[in-house]
């Protein structure tokens, strides 16, 4: 998991749904194709919503880890 080279990490812990998703969308929008954007979140909804958005928009989940109430989701910008 940790071999993945994260281009940008966004700390959205403490933000309510859909805050972490919004922060990720902003991060992906300004990233280059191939970049990996990681978002840290404590919102359970985002752990489900972010992969849904990523699949819908045609990007890729690089990893999704959770440690207690904290989620770490990395997304590779595919287009």
């Amino acid at each position: 998991m940790s071999e993945v080279q994260v281009t940008k990490s966004i700390d959205a812990r403490g933000a309510y749904c859909p805050g972490p998703l919004m922060e990720l969308v902003k991060g992906i929008k300004t990233a280059q194709v191939g970049d990996i954007v990681e978002v840290l979140s404590t919102d359970k909804g985002s752990a489900v919503d972010i992969p849904e958005w990523v699949n819908k928009m045609g990007h890729e989940i690089a990893y999704l880890e959770n440690d207690g109430d904290e989620f770490k989701i990395a997304v590779k910008k595919a287009k």
Partner: peptide, 11 residues
């Protein structure tokens, strides 16, 4: 607003 904004971000 929540549904609208997420829909917009989803294309």
């Amino acid at each position: 607003a929540l549904v609208g904004s997420v829909a917009s971000m989803s294309g």
